[in-house]
C-alpha cells in the first residue's frame, strides 16, 4: 500500500494517507514530555509536542472563528526572518524549553524536532541563536513531534479572500 505512512504523534496521532491526514487535537500535548526532572506542561510555558499540522489546524479554525475578519497562518520563512531581523525586541522568538533540566540542547538529531515548524525554537543557548533559524525552516511541513511552539501571524480583512478560508499556504 504505497504512499501510506503511519506516524505516531505524541498523545495524539497523525495518520498520513498520501495527501490526506487524520489527526487528533489534544488539550495538553506538552505533557508528553513531562518526566521526572522535566516539566513542559506548565500553564505559562510555550506549547510543545505539536506538529506543523496541529498548528495549521489552529490557524484554520481561528480564521473561521473570526468570521473572515482575520486570516491566521504560520509565518512564512520570509516573514519569520523579517521579524527576527527587524523586530527582535518587540517579538519574543526565544523561549525557555532548552533551559529545562534534563534536556540536552546538543542532543543528536535535534534539528529534526523543528522540522516543519518555522523556527520559534526558543533558546537561551547561544549555540542555537536566531542566526540558525534558516537551517530549520523548511519549505515542506513535516509531521514530527517537536519541542518547538509557534507564533501565528494574522492578516486583517481586506487583505485575504474570505472564500479561501479553508486553504492556506
Amino acid at each position: 500500500m504505497p504512499g501510506i505512512e503511519k506516524l505516531k504523534f505524541d498523545q495524539g496521532e497523525v495518520l498520513v494517507f498520501g495527501s490526506r491526514l487524520f489527526m487528533k487535537m489534544m488539550d495538553n500535548p506538552s505533557a508528553k514530555y513531562d518526566k521526572q526532572g522535566r516539566v513542559f506542561s506548565g500553564t505559562n510555558q510555550d506549547v510543545v509536542g505539536i506538529s506543523y499540522f496541529h498548528a495549521k489546524i489552529w490557524c484554520l479554525l481561528s480564521t473561521l472563528e473570526s468570521g473572515g475578519e482575520f486570516k491566521y497562518d504560520l509565518p512564512t520563512h520570509l516573514q519569520y526572518e523579517y521579524v527576527a531581523r527587524h523586530f527582535p525586541l518587540d517579538v519574543q522568538i526565544g523561549g525557555n524549553v532548552w533551559q529545562q533540566p534534563g534536556l540536552d540542547p546538543h542532543e543528536r538529531n535535534f534539528s529534526e524536532r523543528f522540522y516543519g515548524l518555522h523556527g520559534w525554537y526558543w533558546t537561551a543557548n547561544p549555540h542555537f541563536g536566531r542566526a540558525r533559524v534558516q537551517n530549520y525552516s523548511l519549505d515542506l511541513p513535516g509531521v514530527r513531534g517537536s519541542y518547538a511552539s509557534f507564533s501565528p501571524v494574522v492578516v486583517a480583512r481586506g487583505q485575504h479572500g474570505v472564500k479561501s478560508l479553508h486553504s492556506s499556504g
Binding site: V47, S62, Q92
Partner: peptide, 28 residues
C-alpha cells in the same frame, strides 16, 4: 501581524477547547 510570543500551554488548551470542542478528530 504576529503574535508577540509563542502560544503557551494555557492558550493552546483554551483555544482547542473553544475551537474544536469535543470534536477532536479532523480529516485534513
Amino acid at each position: 501581524g504576529i503574535k508577540k510570543s509563542p502560544v503557551t500551554n494555557e492558550e493552546w488548551a483554551r483555544d482547542v477547547k473553544r475551537l474544536v470542542g469535543e470534536d477532536r478528530f479532523f480529516w485534513v
